[in-house]
Design a protein around this nucleic acid. Structure first.
Lengths: 197, 197
DNA sequence: ACCTGAACACCGTTCAAGT
DNA sequence: ACCTGAACACCGTTCAAGT
């Protein structure tokens, strides 16, 4: 065990964030308390206030961090050399894998109440997610792999479909272990439609 | 103004639920406090404990009530005499209208943490929602309006797509006023696919 | 610049006691 | 059967003061 704790923690902000994410994963958002985080960091209950103006600011920082990781995962999963169907499947797999591994974090990321101060950054991250999909769809369209409907409609159905899957999994309404094995079918049906040809 | 409040409220349970839903709609879930609800019902802070074993039990009752209303709306919107596309559009419209009118309630209904005591009832309501979709899809399939893929896959894509739309709207990620006007396109794309025929 | 300790105004929950 | 009032153990947030 170390000697007496130094007055300055040194890295309190990241310690709090890491600890908060662990609590989120293990006990859920309701169990998140600033005082408890301070306690387990060995710091006074008022110390977090130095790094986060209030509890929502810490939650926003968690969400922002989540988006950054999701976006990195999606971007590195996107292989522009692939044809539409495998390319979309790979992107979807990255998204769903994140949803399976971090359901509570995803729920937090989706949540509607954020500090106005964080809104702009969060919105940027959402745009970054969307632009990954947009790139894929624009490419596919220019190669004649998609119908000639407006981009917005195609984007919306694609995003809603994958987002819905992720939400169903994160909410526990659809089993996590099945969603990845049925993903190929899912993407195929999305591209080919439910109606007989 | 009435005379002195009687000792027995008479209808405290429904009063609390109604008041809670108003708070949810107007101020969000974070602003929901049992003590505040008790105050505005003119009752002691311990009185709600008689009708709800804890705060989560009240939230579960709200969610349950929400599902009942959503299910009624969806069932009465389902017209079995219609062909697949208009029939699905009508059902989807009912779902999305609910999502637009009660985004916070929907978020609560989707939420993953409920009392074990409420889990069975909530699960029944979800099954009831799914069976409405299942009826539509079974009918359409028997009439040759759907491809010959297994029901589960068709259900999953349909549910995920509409659920995703509702979630995007409830989260404020997609404008509520647009989702209803673009709904016809959305359903059409879902049925016909994104790929050229 | 960063943290503490006390203070303030809230919570949810429990439980004896009242009607 | 239903509600009250006090009590308990928690919160988040603020702010002077310490290092």
């Amino acid at each position: 065990m170390s000697a007496s704790r130094p007055y300055h923690h040194g890295d309190l902000r990241s310690t709090l964030l890491a600890s908060a994410e662990r609590t989120l994963r293990e006990k859920g958002a309701a169990a998140l308390s600033l005082r408890e985080l301070a306690r387990s960091a060995g710091v006074s209950h008022a110390a977090p206030g130095r790094h986060f103006k209030d509890k929502q600011a810490l939650l926003d920082a968690l969400a922002l961090n989540g988006y950054a990781r999701l976006n990195e995962a999606m971007e590195s999963a996107d292989d522009a050399t692939l044809p539409l169907e495998p390319r979309l499947t790979s992107l979807a797999r990255a998204y769903l894998t994140f949803a399976i591994q971090h359901p509570e974090l995803l729920e937090l990321m989706y949540s509607r109440k954020h500090d106005p101060a964080s809104a702009a950054q969060l919105s940027d991250e959402v745009d970054r997610s969307l632009s990954t999909f947009l790139r894929l769809i624009t490419d596919a369209k220019s190669q004649g792999e998609l119908i000639n409907t407006d981009l917005d409609s195609i984007m919306l159905l694609t995003a809603a479909s994958l987002h819905g899957l992720a939400a169903l999994v994160a909410a526990g309404a659809y089993p996590a272990d099945e969603v990845l094995t049925t993903l190929d079918t899912h993407v195929h049906l999305l591209l080919d439609g439910l109606r007989p040809r």
